[in-house]
């Protein structure tokens, strides 16, 4: 995808690792995290892409354990946003196992 001089477009695949999957509390953590950045954040499950800053849309993904999601960030702080989200989802596993 094209990127202009002052904006970044980044994609990264992450896997849902906590046993309960992306239920409401993790979904809220994603929205909180995404909302800290100015970048536009999309989260995709297969062909379904949703706004990473909308709690309803993120919960609608219903991503179970083992689901692979694609994170897309567009904007100046996209690199930081992708980093923070990947850390939350894959490494910290939302701090709940």
């Amino acid at each position: 995808m094209p990127s202009t001089q002052d904006s970044h477009y980044l994609e990264r695949e992450v896997e849902i690792r906590n046993p309960d999957g992306l239920h409401m509390r993790p979904a809220m953590q994603i929205v909180d995290c995404a909302s800290r950045f100015r970048a536009r954040i999309s989260i995709c499950k297969n062909t379904q892409c949703v706004d990473g800053k909308s709690i309803m849309q993120v919960t609608m993904l219903a991503a179970t354990q083992g689901t692979k999601l694609k994170l897309i960030a567009e904007g100046e702080d996209a690199p930081q946003a992708i980093e923070a989200l990947a850390l939350l989802i894959q490494n910290e596993k939302f701090d709940i196992g």
């Binding site: 046993p19 309960d20 999957g21 992306l22 239920h23 409401m24 909308s54 309803m56 849309q57 919960t59 609608m60 993904l61 219903a62 991503a63 179970t64 354990q65």
Partner: peptide, 17 residues
């Protein structure tokens, strides 16, 4: 059955949005 719980939430939110 956490997967089934997620399916119910998905169904609910697809209408609520």
């Amino acid at each position: 059955n956490p997967d089934r719980h997620l399916e119910a939430m998905e169904s609910l939110f697809s209408h609520l949005q």
